[in-house]
Design a protein around this nucleic acid. Sequence first.
DNA 1: CTTGACCTTGACGCTGCGTCAACCCTCCAT
DNA 2: ATGGAGGGTTGACGCAGCGTCAAGGTCAAG
Lengths: 259, 259
Amino acid sequence: MLTIGQLAAYAGVTVRAVRHYHQIGLLPEPERDPSGYRRYAATAAVSLIKIRTLADAGVPLSQISRMLEAEASAFAEAIRTIDNHLRDEIERLETSRRHIGQLTAGDSLALPPEVAAYLDRLRSIGASERMVEAERDGWILVAARWPDRIVEWMPGKVAQLDDPQVVRLYRVLSEIFDGDVEDDPRLAEAADIMACLAEQAHAAGEVILGEEADDDLPHDLIDALAVESDPRVERLRELMRERGWSGWNRMERLAEPPA
Amino acid sequence: MLTIGQLAAYAGVTVRAVRHYHQIGLLPEPERDPSGYRRYAATAAVSLIKIRTLADAGVPLSQISRMLEAEASAFAEAIRTIDNHLRDEIERLETSRRHIGQLTAGDSLALPPEVAAYLDRLRSIGASERMVEAERDGWILVAARWPDRIVEWMPGKVAQLDDPQVVRLYRVLSEIFDGDVEDDPRLAEAADIMACLAEQAHAAGEVILGEEADDDLPHDLIDALAVESDPRVERLRELMRERGWSGWNRMERLAEPPA
DNA sequence: CTTGACCTTGACGCTGCGTCAACCCTCCAT
DNA sequence: ATGGAGGGTTGACGCAGCGTCAAGGTCAAG
């Protein structure tokens, strides 16, 4: 006959845990000896260890009690579910490990090389330093949130720069934002190009839009970053609305052209 | 400028979590707009994602705030510590996975093959079915608690059965417990053999005793199991005490022989 | 003007115990 | 027999990290 302390030691748990399991009805209360002490048979150790094995696997105690009352087939099924959870959890921790590694790699200075290459490419087609910095800030945000998927996206972005229209757009925007003229006439040209690009994208990729709501977040994020208090940005949005498009990075056709 | 909901969505956390981080001072409160809404700059998303990355790695929030205030070197050091924790945690989950697998393999019927072989060996040297069952129950307990280490112990147990004295002991004990005589004279013979074995073990393995307190638990466990209300067991303990030994499975020499 | 989707603060709930407090039992050495 | 160490007993509060009402105020769209 075991005391609660011995039982706990054998099972490798604390006395408090055993009492807790009694309280919630997970482990049946044993007989008491004349002085009121709980007295356990050795089989209680097996039950207790079974409980701990499941609890260590991350199974909530409430579910453990249901499992112990279940039949063998249901129990085996539950075990399989738990095993899958464990597998997922291990995978989660492994990606988490990779992510914290990137965290130390220089706060936010060290962007993935793919992004750095993209920024270099931007510079080489004539984008201003200011423009490149703005892009970099945006990609830092994106890289922070989707460190794994960003690699998938860069090839597309780099490919876009083969389009002469896109190159022209970046140059015009660079000129606009490098000066300090608020109502630059080139804003209209930029808006024209953007509308044209939006038109093309709209015609080609209607299907692509239907992917996932998740995929829209990056664009919204860049949107929000861009609108950081510059009247020229506001003016550009206005010009786009005139041309029948709302949004900034991810355009949407407006219902009908404003009067 | 982002609302709290947008920020939360971008960072992949809940609104409640963001407010919680404000409450505990982990994330600085932003300016409010005229209506009292919190308004975030895009950089807040980076801070928030950094926090989540660490929190997902299992770092307590209180420690995260200290980390964010720390210098680069201390930060990098902390990251390394976290990485180690993650590695350990992954390993823990992997062993946990193995253990729950064993749980489903037939409750407690499927002992490790090494133990099954040992029990067969016991049977073949003439131990009674009842004796073998008692041993099996004991090893079920041990296997539940130390599923990995039990494999290390079995070879020693099997080797013991090569000792003719041990074989004799098992046979005598089998005879004693197979009948229902309470004061079997063969109890004395059993006690003699056990005392002799204890003497040998004491002489040979004094050093081994100094291993770890942890290693004593299995023996204590078997002890506790054995003393499950049989007067013959009590009698045997008494006879052993007379011969200067206490305990059952793991013997200790008493200070001086009782009068 | 309403409706629905946001935002605000405040407060309680949840898990799985750790950690007092205040007291009782048992055993061992003196 | 006596005292102290080292068990045991119940009861209660504390902790992290939010989830989840409650009871409102705000904003954009129809």
